[in-house]
Amino acid sequence: MNIVENSDNSVPIKAWDTVLFEKYCRFRFVLTQGLSAHSDTLLDRRPYRAGAHVLDVGCGFGDTTRQIARRVGSCGTAIGVDCAPNFVDVAAHEAQDGDVANASFFAADVQADDLRGPYDFLFSRFGTMFFSAPVAALRNMRKALRPGGELAMIVWRRREDNPWVHEAEQCVRKIVPVVSHEETEEVHCGPGPFSMAGADMVSEMLRIAGYDRISFERFDTDICIGRTLDDAVEFAMALGPAGEIIRLAGEAGKARKGEVVAALRQTFAGRLTAEGVKMPSSSWFITARNGLS
């Protein structure tokens, strides 16, 4: 299998610290509580022992880091790392305000920087799909892991198995002209949320990076993408593949906003429940061991 990597991670890092940070703050409800079923389930199935030292990769707002810190107890530590200093600042302040003394955070490019190990475990909830050079990042992560230590990461399965973003993408593609990253000066998130959907490819990446005992487990759950129909439409227009199509299209995307809103409302109307707009999602729970000393 030929895995081609682009080592420059500067564009995705800038995107996560600017435009994506702003959008994640706006739709934080979806991107923390909405995704928590995935991380809660994995953490329940593979609990960390008291006193463990855990690195949370791509920690974002730090909600999973704080959760891990509580689980490992005062003798353990949970450290969150993210490429975007803005996320790290929010996470650190909220850990302090929440009196989670054994949680701390730092900003780094996980692909290349010192990750301040060694750790007993590495964890990541949807934080590993955006590296320009994923094998280099996975190898750098492994170097921060104790021999025999375990990586557990959650990544999205195929976009077709994730209607919570894919249905909006299909809808927008019919209305807005699609512009590739190469055709614009706009920053972008990197390879994208479905870059690790292929189990065979990711297994090969992990093996090349020095891991063994690699396993994949499918997990499906519904996600609330908005408390109301309007919330769901705004979310789809701002984030995910649909939001990216609109953003990169520039003025052409703005000119078709009315058409997009009407089409998305029609798309989501059948998904509206008393608890909000709920859509199916599907992820891989991937675990692997540091097989090298």
Rank of each mutant, 00 (worst) to 15 (best):
I13K: 14
A168I: 05
G76W: 02
F235S: 02
I208Y: 03
P177T: 14
G240E: 09
D230M: 11
H166W: 13
T184W: 06
N162W: 05
A84M: 10
L122I: 10
A152C: 08
F123L: 04
H166C: 12
F126K: 09
N290Q: 02
N140E: 04
E183I: 08
I68F: 00
S10W: 08
G226K: 03
N86V: 02
A52H: 04
S283D: 09
P118Y: 10
Q170S: 11
A91K: 07
R173K: 15
A137I: 08
G127H: 02
D82G: 07
W156P: 04
L145Y: 05
A91T: 09
G76Q: 06
T221K: 06
F27A: 12
N9E: 01
G198R: 08
A269F: 00
A262G: 05
A252R: 12
T221N: 13
L115F: 05
I246H: 05
V72K: 03
G190F: 09
V72W: 01
L55P: 00
G73I: 00
K14A: 14
R247I: 09
Q33I: 11
P47V: 07
A137L: 09
S195R: 03
E182G: 11
E5N: 11
F29S: 13
A232V: 07
K257N: 11
A269H: 02
V4I: 15
R71V: 00
F268Q: 09
V54T: 04
D82I: 03
R71C: 01
F121M: 04
T228F: 04
L229S: 11
P177H: 13
R157T: 10
P280E: 02
G253N: 09
